[in-house]
Design a protein around this nucleic acid. Sequence first.
DNA 1: TATTGTTATACTCTATAACTATA
DNA 2: TATAGTTATAGAGTATAACAATA
Lengths: 137, 137
Amino acid sequence: MEEREDLGAMVFRLGRLLLAMEQPILDRHGVSMWAYAVLTALRESPMRTQAALAAGIGADKTRLIPVLDELQKRGLIEREPDPSDRRVRLLDLTDAGRQVHQAIQSEVRAGEADLLAAFPPADRDGFLRALIALTKR
Amino acid sequence: MEEREDLGAMVFRLGRLLLAMEQPILDRHGVSMWAYAVLTALRESPMRTQAALAAGIGADKTRLIPVLDELQKRGLIEREPDPSDRRVRLLDLTDAGRQVHQAIQSEVRAGEADLLAAFPPADRDGFLRALIALTKR
DNA sequence: TATTGTTATACTCTATAACTATA
DNA sequence: TATAGTTATAGAGTATAACAATA
């Protein structure tokens, strides 16, 4: 345990590994990683502004716009001006969007399960508990 | 445990957290993240080619060159043509390089310890064991 | 001809600043 | 004047391709 790499180096490599696992799934569904992040955030709950959505997923609001354009064009999200303040855009998933998110996520979870399958349950649980706690907003 | 985020999302956020923790340390020593990765790799063992070093740390060989230029200029690495094959550059740390790496790493490890301090030892060990296993090359 | 390192170039991603429309 | 969203622009980071030196 004392000869381990820095946490940062390991987390960075694990990120790349996970991305390589997820990319083919996303490609199959024609959805970028940011688009998937948007679908995931909106599945939790609708959003009242694009800025809040951007902040929630750690993206710049300007780079979300082409993503939202595409998702809207494909009918995966609703995005309409709030009648009570027409500057803001109310965002929500459509049924089709919910369906696409569900399809992607179940494949992603299966891939994750494969990666974690080899570990003793205690290590796996500790890993997930620590990861969840470290990334609590 | 069932309502958790995707692994990728959590690992991505943890990566940003760790980067934010490390950046001030690196800045204080005037070393970029890639430069620190180079120092770390060379501390394990000297390298016979720049291409091997690049592959080892998951970087493109072309983007390593300015990093190596800078490290050499600062006297932190040795980089000389192999007399037996003058195409290749033999790479190694200088004493000064070893010293800088050691200083940075000890600060980074202290920061990591802070982040992990709150967890029960069992979770912390499981976390590290799983992380090490997942990133074994 | 193949390989190592280097340089030049182009491409992607991201952030900054300027603009519009509403309030 | 202030805010949400959009567009235009520039900057950083990265990869691709061409080049020089050596084998």
